[in-house]
């Protein structure tokens, strides 16, 4: 694992749990179809109660990392061939997704993946599938989801396939909430949404984190927004973590500014430069 750029600051409360993380991904390698090596030793820690961002461009391996954690890789013929994913100290990368949902880890997939022909409310109810709770509890949880997403309540009887992109994203997050998860793996919630909606959705993620105590591991290409809401960030490139640190520091880091926030004078640099940066960083560390 690459070294944090600096020590975690003491005022960032959720970072205190880094020594005893809820979720610990340690040096995993993932291969698709027995031949395509995608993750080449990724390590990251997700402390309880925090929002951890997993950043990186298209194809960096963010989705693959999340799926390795949620055990959704098997159904895509992907396999964790090295390393270990542990949740609360238990090895989980060989279990099945339903087990993980019962343990409290649920993934909201990239591209929302609502059940198109089910109504919004039925979509939410599918999130309740693994739970053994009473009907009264189910309705109470449904109301809670509606209190975070009033828009879903208005559209509860509509087929999810006919709702807008933002509503579908809310539906997918709400559906995950119905499983009463401890940790949500949220894959690219901002994808294809207008900036205003992105703000709204990240705002709700923050609220869920603060008020319901849900831990988030958030994969994003939108570095700017993600680093504003997250506590800690990892930057992934071609299947490797190349940098990590508290979000506030990543935001101020000149390299991140240059390569991911597009704030350099010369504009965004090419991949070549990123590579030379990486070489430079390896020399330094």
């Amino acid at each position: 694992m690459s070294q944090p750029l600096t020590q975690a600051r003491s005022d960032a409360a959720p970072l205190a749990g880094m020594d005893d993380p809820l979720l610990d991904v340690s040096n995993i390698e993932v291969i698709y179809n027995h031949v395509i090596l995608v993750l080449k030793g990724v390590s990251l820690k997700v402390p309880k109660g925090g929002i951890t961002a997993l950043l990186g461009g298209n194809g960096a391996g963010k989705t693959t990392t999340l799926k390795a954690i949620s055990a959704l890789l098997h159904s895509e013929r992907g396999e964790v061939t090295k390393g270990r994913v542990s949740y609360r100290g238990e090895t989980v990368h060989n279990s099945d997704p339903a087990d993980l949902v019962r343990k409290g880890v649920i993934q909201v997939m990239e591209g929302r993946h609502c059940f198109e022909h089910l109504t919004v409310e039925e979509n939410l109810l599918t999130g309740f599938y693994t739970r053994k709770a009473s009907k009264a509890e189910m309705n109470a949880d449904l109301e809670k989801v509606y209190s975070y997403f009033p828009r879903l309540k208005e559209r509860r009887k509509s087929q999810a396939g006919y709702t807008s992109g933002g509503e579908q994203q809310m539906c997918a997050i709400g559906r995950a909430m119905m499983a009463k998860p401890e940790t949500i793996l949220l894959d690219e919630p901002s994808m294809g949404l207008a900036p205003q909606l992105v703000e709204e959705i990240f705002g709700i993620v923050k609220e869920l984190n603060e008020r319901e105590g849900v831990t988030f591991l958030l994969a994003e290409q939108n570095t700017n927004v993600a680093l504003r809401f997250a506590h800690y960030g990892y930057i992934l490139e071609s299947g490797r973590v190349v940098m990590d640190g508290p979000a506030a520091e990543l935001r101020e880091n000149p390299d991140v500014k240059e390569f991911y926030l597009g704030m350099s004078d010369e504009g965004r640099k090419s991949f070549r430069d990123v590579r030379s940066y990486r070489r430079r960083k390896r020399w330094l560390s």
Partner: peptide
């Protein structure tokens, strides 16, 4: 895939 993700 989505069904798997909610634990079905």
């Amino acid at each position: 895939q989505a069904a798997l993700s909610v634990g079905i």
